[in-house]
Design a protein around this nucleic acid. Structure first.
Lengths: 143, 143
DNA sequence: TATTGTTATACTCTATAACTATA
DNA sequence: TATAGTTATAGAGTATAACAATA
């Protein structure tokens, strides 16, 4: 581990916490929070799954995910159905409304973010794209 | 604005919120939270400043920064001194303990993060380094 | 007994609104 | 009046501990 890598770890942490603060704060007019949107995106990407599975994908504890699912279900974005063979488990699925919302958010809602990105050149965009893939690797490494 | 850029904005948002969740959760054994650490890092980078200035740098509202500063002052990490000419303002500075803590955190605390980075090749590290600079540009653009 | 999900509870982070002191 | 900071209060997000139902 070089000095450069340690500095990178620290700088990346700070950049991420500051950017996430922005992103959360700028969603006051959205029907779903960033936490909810992230859960919807996981369901869209991986398909229906149990609350425990979703908690694992999103890297939160099960009680936290229970809350997120409850709020999404109340808004009609997800449905909860019994597991076919295991009575302890339930299956969480995106509803049509959930799919529609996700499409809306993905295509039109990230205004501040897209405004920022609009100021970048193609090479900078490529760097960000690659960094997302790398960061995504962190989160799934410990699966 | 191309489709690719919109997708990038969405993906970057989700990657950031998930990574920040990890980073916050993994600091339970640290003497300072990520929010506190970020404020200390700003003071270290930019030098002593007023609570309002720090709130602006960290992109939070003044009352939020009041709280962060109060907790850091209680822990002896920062000091508050009167502004020399304007009685309404105060100057927040890093103490020796604050500097020492920041050095500690930077050099040794980001274990999970550095572990993740250790698995990357130099080219991937360079991509992350550049992405931090780009993201840092977002946050200061609106100064 | 072990596992899955939920409920109860508490803490951190952040915000808006109202207040105080100074310019 | 306007500005800087704080206090009061509230809401979102997350966690741990305890519980209920099922395997």
């Amino acid at each position: 581990m070089t000095l450069d890598t340690r500095s990178l770890a620290s700088d990346l942490s700070l950049a991420v916490v500051r950017l996430s603060r922005h992103l959360r704060g700028r969603r006051a007019d959205s029907p779903v929070s960033l936490t909810q949107l992230s859960a919807l995106a996981s369901l869209d990407e991986h398909g229906p799954m149990t609350p425990g599975g979703l908690a694992s994908k999103e890297r939160v504890q099960p009680p936290s995910m229970t809350r997120v699912i409850a709020s999404l279900a109340e808004g009609g974005m997800v449905s909860r159905t019994p597991h076919p063979t295991d009575g302890r488990q339930i299956i969480v699925s995106l509803t049509d409304a959930g799919h529609a919302l996700l499409a809306d958010e993905t295509s039109a809602r990230e205004k501040w973010m897209t405004d920022q990105l609009a100021g970048l050149d193609p090479e900078q965009l490529a760097v960000l794209r690659r960094s997302i893939d790398i960061i995504g690797g962190f989160v799934t490494n410990s699966d």
